[in-house]
Design a protein around this nucleic acid. Sequence first.
DNA 1: GCGGTAAATTATG
DNA 2: CATAATTTACCGC
Length: 170
Amino acid sequence: MKANVETCLGLFEVTFSSKGLVSVVFPNGENERMLPNDLEFPSKEDFELWLGITSRALRNFMEGIEPSELPPFDLSLGTPFQQEVWNKLLEIQWGEVWTYARLGRELGKPNGARAAGSACGANPIPVLIPCHRVLSSSGGLCGFTAGLPWKQRLLELEGAWLPLKSASAA
DNA sequence: GCGGTAAATTATG
DNA sequence: CATAATTTACCGC
């Protein structure tokens, strides 16, 4: 069940299942990914409700405003570890920036930064699940499924510039 | 400080 | 089992 959400940065494509939001695709379609075909469709009521919430949240993001409400997520397509990571990402406060090392450590994997990054890369719901707030330990952006420019732009939007080199702006 | 190589963790073929 | 993914640590320059 797909739908489009228009923001000032472009048209996002969102997908819902009977459990909630399944994926968000950037306007450039960079992070398009394989979704299971056996997803159950949501009821018309839920779909319209979630779409409204998602639409509002997405547009808030694009304007640098913290969304007051988020739709339910259907994380059933991820592995337990990935769900743990994504859930952790949701705990990152607006404008706060973490590192993969810290993320891994919070998950009980002190050396699992790579694994955490891998799970982030598998994140089907960018922006709403703030995978863009996670940087490398050296202050670099490292990478982003939908392209580094998006990651950088999202961080800029919420006023969370690189913590280690914020003085080098301009 | 920068670039290359080795190591660590989870997911996927 | 081997390879890949949004990394980190170490070594030499």
